[in-house]
Nucleic acid binder design. Sequence first.
DNA 1: ACAAATCTGACACAGAATTGAAATATCAGG
DNA 2: CCTGATATTTCAATTCTGTGTCAGATTTGT
Lengths: 229, 229
Amino acid sequence: MSAPKLLLVEDDTALAELLEYRFESEGYDVRVTADGDDALIMAAEDTPDLVILDWMIEGTTGIEVCRRLRRDKATAHVPIIMLTAREAEDDRVRGLETGADDYLTKPFSPRELLARVSAVLRRVRPALAGETIEAGDLKLDPVAHRVERRGKALQIGPTEYRLIKFFMEHPRRVFSRGQLLDAVWGTGSEIEERTVDVHIRRLRKAISLENTRDPIRTVRSAGYALEPV
Amino acid sequence: MSAPKLLLVEDDTALAELLEYRFESEGYDVRVTADGDDALIMAAEDTPDLVILDWMIEGTTGIEVCRRLRRDKATAHVPIIMLTAREAEDDRVRGLETGADDYLTKPFSPRELLARVSAVLRRVRPALAGETIEAGDLKLDPVAHRVERRGKALQIGPTEYRLIKFFMEHPRRVFSRGQLLDAVWGTGSEIEERTVDVHIRRLRKAISLENTRDPIRTVRSAGYALEPV
DNA sequence: ACAAATCTGACACAGAATTGAAATATCAGG
DNA sequence: CCTGATATTTCAATTCTGTGTCAGATTTGT
């Protein structure tokens, strides 16, 4: 359900198929294209969680794809792993300059790529790596889309789920309403900041049990933070 | 929020945009200009926490910007990271001479620049890099927006928080009421100097515990200072 | 496709916390 | 014991947060 969505941009058909198979068997949701322009369209239609990008591809070049992904707000923060030929040291430099998060020189083992992907995802968003996250007496299973407190499942709505998940991914840290809107509602959402309060309240209500203190701390004039019990 | 404010002076539009995205996604508050004179105006209006300065820019040259930033009291201590072309070794030397804190030769990876920025901020003002700062038995976590004394969390209001944070960033140093108003309330605030006394009093009360002496020293006819226990 | 149930975002208002200033009490140093 | 400076107390104004409610949008179940 919430399998991490990968976009693989690779024009070596054999390699692409191999990787697709490998990643799918590891539980990723993979889409493949050999063409740079295609890649941009696919990324725009359904924002992937990570892009694996071959440097030497048809159509738009790798560097161009990279740049355009970064330029579009929706995909600006999607991590990118580049695949480059061994010799092309310069490309590597330019790649990192352009905003790739990591790179791998060919030839590489699928296992190695898997490890990098997993590492990058874990760094960016632990929940995407399929790990349950815990914070105090709260436990969240991203795969099952389920949150429990003290082992008791909570009845929680979509927005509140995303909210608590975000908080649990960054415990103790204070976020302003603006940051929460960006992170939970999506960058550039045109929503009233005060509305965050309302959802915080709904979340508090949803996660409250008998004899538990509210783990969400209000930091006046700054925002909110999850304070694990 | 307490996002570090960066001023990026770069006339390569593509690079500037790329960096702006990267830094914003890392939680910095970035402002960009391609022009040296603009940069000086922007720096004067709202003192940044760090300046990233391309050596080769339109208008006033990099070296000139650097010099003028150093000349103005408000920006004299703002760290500067220079970006130079690979060949221009001389510029690098002159840059460091002029007062830049660090430099980076093009091409460089955004990640590298991020690391430098973080390193410089950590050196100059640990709290801006998200590190906890300690002063005697006081500990302040800027990310969690939390202050504790002897491991005990303190109940503290917004203004008192900013005040103690400022003191902890500059322990032992004496500040006049005017300086405190500028630093904590913001330059040009129209507030009575006497009011500072009141907040000092509130702060003292907020950080007092049993069997602790007051770490805030009154320096008669000069101001106040934090004297770590 | 239709109706019920749920979810969302926006308001508005009450209550709580914070703030700045003014008035009064104390203090430090000569 | 003066005198200028700082500490406290008090208070009204302002800012910020918690909640109840509502209409419209979305999802769900049939």
